Simulated scan of single mutants.
Amino acid sequence: MRIAITARGSHPSSEVDESFGRAYWFLLFDTKTESYVAVDNTVIRNSQENAGVKAAELLKERNVNILLTGETGPKAFRSLVEKGIKVFHGASGSVEDTLNAWLEKGMIEAEHANSPGSPYCLVVQSKTLQVDAPKVLLDLLKP
């Protein structure tokens, strides 16, 4: 099994990054080999939009089964669930501390996003209002 943990650095002693899609790093822990692989998330972090959805795709490509993070927005959460990745919110402290908390069953699987995400996550269909501007006629008075 592969567990992804959002991190501020590339080492297991690094602090957890509370953000998912715009995390600095993902540390992937393989339960079979008990080893970490650090994945730099700079490109996705700096993308203009859909960072969470892109990060979910990256984790799926890396065969991740579990995500330990501080928070996820609605689009990211849906994307992770659709890809079969279980999400656990509330990660804090170091990457090692977070992994140990999860291994000791100290984290509960998330049922929904816990962050509103980007303002663009909640796009509402708007109706176009057509307003007839009053026509103003100016009479030029001649002296």
Rank of each mutant, 00 (worst) to 15 (best):
Asn114Met: 03
Phe26Arg: 01
Glu57Leu: 12
Ala55Thr: 01
Glu111His: 11
Tyr36Arg: 03
Ser126Arg: 15
Asp40Thr: 03
Ala76Ile: 06
Asp139Leu: 14
Phe77Met: 01
Val64Cys: 12
Ile44Ser: 09
Val39Gly: 00
Leu58Ile: 11
Tyr24Ala: 14
Glu34Ser: 13
Val43Met: 08
Leu141Ser: 05
Ala4Ile: 11
Leu141Gln: 03
Ala56His: 06
Arg22Asp: 08
Leu28Arg: 07
Gly52Thr: 06
Gly84Trp: 01
Val136Asp: 00
Glu57Ile: 13
Tyr36Glu: 02
Lys54Leu: 15
Gly21Phe: 04
Cys121Val: 06
Val64Ile: 09
Leu141Lys: 08
Ile108Asp: 09
Asp30Trp: 01
Val124Gly: 01
Ser47Arg: 07
Ser35Pro: 00
Val16Glu: 05
Phe29Arg: 03
Thr69Asp: 08
Ala101Gln: 10
Thr128Ser: 12
Glu15Cys: 01
Val131Gln: 09
Val37Cys: 06
Ser47Lys: 09
Lys60Met: 09
Thr72Pro: 12
Pro143Phe: 08
Val37Pro: 00
Ser92Leu: 07
Ile5Trp: 03
Leu59Ser: 04
Ala7Leu: 07
Asn63Glu: 14
Thr72Asn: 10
Thr98Ile: 02
Thr128Gln: 13
Lys105Trp: 02
Pro143Asp: 14
Ile3Pro: 06
Ser10His: 08
Ser79Phe: 00
Ala76Asp: 03
Gly73Arg: 05
Pro134Ala: 09
Gly73Asn: 04
Lys60Pro: 00
